[in-house]
Amino acid sequence: MKEELILPQCRYPWPTIPSPIANAFDDEEKAWYDNDYTFISEEGIKRCKPQFLSRVATYMNPTCDSMDRMRPCARLMIYITIFDDFFGMTPANELKIMADRVYEVMMGQDPHEDEIGILRQMAQARKEWETFMPRFWIDRVSINFYEFIMYGMMEEIPFKQAENRTYPLLAHYLSFRKYSIGMWPYGDLIDPSVNYALPVHIYNHPIIQRCRELLSLIIVIQNDFASLKKELEIENESLNIIFILRNQYKISYQEACTEAMKLHDAYAQELDDLHQSLPDFGSFQEEVYNHVYHIKLQISGCADWYYNSGTSRYEHKAFIVPQYGREGDDIIIPHSIFIKE
């Protein structure tokens, strides 16, 4: 009898809430690809459109009913995902240059006419946020995006470029994957979606930082379950918690799934417990409680997107070909187009 691998679904001790504007940006998203993502091939754009990446923003921020507040969030959901997909194999020295340029644009510089179109999306999102979000929040999301590249994508490069499959230990994997999953800037999108930016001293509180870290760690495991079927078909893929647990502890795929879900559930319970036992934040108590509540909604909303949005992202050959990938149907971007003398 052929062995089957049963993948458990991620479940949470809090509700999943549907967004009133869940599919609102489907048409705009297509136009963004056609106008600003032409650095990937026509085939790559065709692969992107049925992934419904703009819906990640609405599913993860389901209490927001404002198109204007959600539009720049939808832009970010797309440009962070495409940036990761396309530049995930880029050498570290080039990626550092790109990270610097992205940070400059997100902080206020406009891209040049001949620069890559993804920078136009970043600049437009920033301009939209500037109409209703404070400067300190713009700084926050810009720094977190920079760290997504430097502490996340950069740390994955040795494993992605290794000639033979190489596995990090679990502790090492989680230390960089919690950045490369992109949830630090994704978590920042709670503020525009509820139209309230956590003050700096509240945001920096260790309880809030732990809740944000748990958001990242939970989504890491959630994403690894969602992408496992596709990644089993990739010859040298090692950056999935199921592969890592299997290799580190010499267990079966099914046992690795069980262990990963135990870790996932423990993180989810910790987040729920922290939400129910927040310290005294004084006059900010209601806003802090609401923020952590929305961290939880982001998690269950992301799972809802994986399972129920109709995305094709985790189907065979749904991803675009990365800049330094092995297939030849996407245009390679010289890193010099990021840099203007």
Results as ranks from 00 to 15, higher is better:
Glu155Lys: 12
Glu147Tyr: 10
Arg210Pro: 06
Lys178Phe: 01
Glu156Met: 07
Ala162Ser: 15
Asp139Arg: 13
Pro206Ala: 12
Glu147His: 14
Phe159Ile: 03
Gln209Thr: 09
Asn223Ala: 08
Trp129Val: 01
Thr166Gln: 15
Val200Glu: 14
Trp137Asn: 03
Met154Gln: 11
Pro206Arg: 12
Ser180Asp: 11
Arg135Thr: 12
Gly187Phe: 03
Pro192Asn: 09
Gln124Ser: 11
Ile149Val: 08
Met133Glu: 02
Arg126Pro: 02
Pro158Leu: 10
Pro206Phe: 08
Ile190Gln: 04
Gly152Arg: 02
Ile190Val: 15
Tyr173Phe: 15
Asp188Val: 00
Ile157His: 08
Phe145His: 11
Tyr146Pro: 07
Glu147Ala: 07
Ala197Glu: 06
Glu128Asp: 14
His172Glu: 15
Tyr196Ile: 14
Glu156Ser: 06
Cys211Gln: 02
Ile218Asp: 03
Met154Ala: 09
Phe176Val: 00
Glu130Ala: 15
Leu169Arg: 15
Ile149Gly: 04
Gly152Glu: 00
Trp184Ala: 00
Ser180Cys: 08
Ser142Pro: 06
Gln209Asn: 12
Ala123Pro: 01
Ser216Gly: 10
Tyr196Phe: 15
Thr131Trp: 02
Arg177Cys: 03
Tyr179Met: 02
Gly187Thr: 07
Tyr146Ser: 09
Ala171Gln: 12
Trp137Cys: 00
Arg135Leu: 13
Ile138Arg: 05
Phe148Trp: 06
Ile207His: 01
Gln161Asp: 08
Ile157Gln: 13
His205Ile: 13
Lys178Val: 00
Tyr146Arg: 14
His205Arg: 15
Thr131Asp: 06
Glu156Asn: 08
Ser216Ala: 14
Tyr167Trp: 11
Asn195Val: 10
Asn164Gly: 10
Val200Tyr: 12
Glu163Ala: 14
Ala171Gly: 07
Phe145Gly: 00
Phe136Val: 07
Asn164Phe: 13
Leu217Asn: 08
Ile143Leu: 10
Arg212Lys: 14
Ile221Ser: 05
Tyr167Asp: 08
Asn204Phe: 04
Tyr146Asn: 07
Ile138Val: 12
Pro199Lys: 06
Lys160Asp: 03
Ala162Phe: 12
Arg210Thr: 14
